[in-house]
Design a protein around this nucleic acid. Structure first.
Lengths: 224, 224
DNA sequence: TATTTGTAATAGTATTACTATCATTTTGTA
DNA sequence: TACAAAATGATAGTAATACTATTACAAATA
């Protein structure tokens, strides 16, 4: 539909750009699937090497460690979300309408593939299940200095700026923006694993309920 | 002030109740400090054993693995929060007032110690930094079956019920309740490490701002 | 053709996450 | 006080993890 889009990931996240070689593409495409399948804790470069019939040493030439690989996926994901936001809100005049579109994007389960190497549905699933592990570490301050979270921050700023355009007096635009994003992911996880922690059931009839909840609370805050 | 209170932690979380022996108390009190200091990823039973001048094997007699130790602390924390809620909302008639007190409790940095073994300030810090790792695992469904998250769910139910008493027509009481709790912790973490992701600065003048944000957003949702 | 680049193969280290065994100390009870 | 049971300590060991280093060879490129 749109063809392949190019997403720039912070160069410090990899030792060699995985998109530039066949092996590199295999590492990220199969690595994503394997993280999704095993969970980040049980995922190792050794297992990935076996899966792609390469060696641990070869993977280490692309990524310093598995934490950087996770950060790479997260950075990639937010680059993708930023693209979707600018694409889908293009030509929309109403700021409220724009915010609703963005909420639709962040609560959506991405199924169509516009990339070559990364499966977007799996990418979204990995983000939901693993995201907080990227920053809940002792290395967060240094990772932040290296700019590993800039993509996420950019999306957050887009939403915060939009909130301020809707209501310039609202005092907590940044906090609300993060809460919209994080709550969307958290509720999706709880829906699947700890359903008593959300009001939203997972049946087909209610598939819009998560979106409705987020829209309700976002506008309640902004318009209060 | 209130003396030592007894908090019941799910029995499946430990092999031997650590509160019943001197070594057990050392494991949890020093274990908590060490997790806080090193972060959960770098924390090991071997390092803890060295610190308390015991052996790895002895610690394994109390906890199956470090993940169960983390779940123990989280369970303990929510037991403590449940106690604080019932203590501090006792005799308060207004439901709105009760909710404000609860929000104060969950956004508070706990500094006074009513326990013998566990340092509450450090306990709170560990919850903020490590909580999502307790459920963002491939073992979440089985851990849930064993009842490892019941304490958290109970606090959540208390808040959700209260929300429904304030507004019986509000459709997302459970989701909002979790969002109040999780956002409080998340924003506290971002305040310290990724300040551009929150509207709230960490200086003394604004120490009530997090609470104000949560109160604003909770009541905006409930009263809309 | 020479040089760089990418990959494989092999080996090795320190640490992690355990488990097992047995000796010793502590404790509870008769 | 004596004895058995329970708790702890000391030691050892295993499989897996998370790397690093070296060498070699093939393919791409200059």
């Amino acid at each position: 539909m749109v063809g392949i889009i190019k997403i720039d990931v912070n160069e410090n996240l990899y030792l060699r750009n995985p998109e530039e070689t066949e092996l590199g593409k295999l590492i990220i495409s199969e690595g994503l699937l394997l993280i999704s399948e095993l969970g980040f804790e049980h995922f190792t470069f050794k297992k990935l090497a076996t899966k792609i019939e390469s060696t641990e040493a070869s993977i280490y030439r692309y990524f310093e460690n598995k934490h950087h690989l996770l950060l790479y996926f997260i950075s990639y994901y937010w680059g993708y979300i930023e693209f979707l936001i600018s694409f889908e809100t293009n030509n929309i005049k109403s700021n409220k309408e724009k915010l609703k579109i963005i909420i639709d994007i962040v609560t959506r389960k991405h199924k169509d593939n516009i990339y070559t190497y990364l499966n977007e549905e799996v990418l979204h699933a990995v983000i939901v299940a693993e995201s907080p592990k990227s920053y809940l570490t002792k290395e967060v301050d240094s990772d932040n200095k290296y700019g590993f979270f800039v993509q996420y921050k950019r999306v957050n700023k887009i939403i915060a700026d939009l909130i301020l355009e809707i209501n310039p007096k609202y005092k907590y635009a940044n906090s609300l923006s993060v809460t919209i994003i994080e709550t969307s992911q958290e509720q999706e996880f709880f829906q699947n694993h700890l359903p008593s922690l959300c009001s939203i059931s997972d049946n087909k009839k209610n598939k819009e309920e998560l979106k409705d909840f987020i829209i309700h609370f976002a506008f309640a805050c902004i318009e209060k």
